[in-house]
Write a protein that binds this DNA or RNA. Structure first.
Lengths: 146, 146
DNA sequence: TATTGTTATACTCTATAACTATA
DNA sequence: TATAGTTATAGAGTATAACAATA
């Protein structure tokens, strides 16, 4: 049986547990959303991140994964005609960029993600604004100030 | 294919994108936390979920994965002395339960998860209360009411 | 017939290490 | 030497399908 606590650590675990529940549900929704477009969660994030010509190295940083993974992901997307790969002025670099089809897909994907997000389906507009305010603080790199 | 509903869903996408950023960062933190205890993210969720004797089928539902995965996960945890597996009154069923070591690990894991959660490290106590209120609505199954 | 758990299989994600081409 | 990308490899997560035991 779970231990019911009234201490501050119990409260801290409550918020952490709730957040993790939301995290898992959000992951599933995002993956389902990506699947509607024939994408996995990672390739969907790949496309949503690709706003301008970006080297594989930088994209790996954005996706928080090793550069060795980006080669394969990019290769599949190139094969599907969603991404192009061109050498940069530094000949070691390959710049990835969305094709017209890729940009069209990203626009549709963005709208679908927005429409199916937990935030959109479970919160009122007013609560969404309060939620954004808190998320901005969570997503930033600053520490809290009591 | 999903239908594109609006051309200006900027606000809805903003909150969805922010939420997804927080989701990814939370995943990484949780996985790092689990790794401190020699666990992967899934086995950590497995242990945090195991409060009372639970069949593999029910646990699979809780973890939102196929039952075929639970066999292997449980097997590894049994080998490590964290979980026991015993047949139920229905002889098809195996009931999984934490050992004393497993319960001790879970207690430590809960505290560590709470301490390293984004919610704990980035939000003040006051904001945490507001956050819990919103998360409760997100985690529940109710639809929004405008 | 239906369900629980098991096994085999396959695909994806992910990191590490060794390699090449370039800087 | 250092960096960008590639390739090979391995471990983990996950789903599907076929199977045995039980209900």
């Amino acid at each position: 049986m779970p231990t019911v606590q009234r201490s501050s650590s119990g409260d801290a675990y409550h918020v952490a547990r709730r957040l993790n529940e939301v995290v898992e549900e959000s992951r599933r929704r995002f993956a389902a959303c990506a699947a509607e477009f024939g994408l996995t969660a990672v390739t969907a994030r790949f496309i949503l991140r690709l706003h301008e010509p970006t080297s594989m190295r930088v994209l790996a940083d954005h996706l928080h994964c090793d550069k060795s993974n980006v080669t394969g992901l990019a290769s599949r997307l190139v094969d599907r005609g969603l991404v192009t790969s061109r050498p940069g002025s530094d000949r070691r670099v390959k710049n990835l960029e969305l094709t017209a089809r890729g940009r069209h897909l990203r626009a549709e994907l963005e709208q679908r993600v927005a429409a199916t997000s937990l935030a959109a389906t479970r919160l009122t507009k007013k609560d969404q604004r309060a939620f954004i305010d808190l998320l901005d603080r969570l997503a930033g790199s600053e520490a809290k100030r009591e």
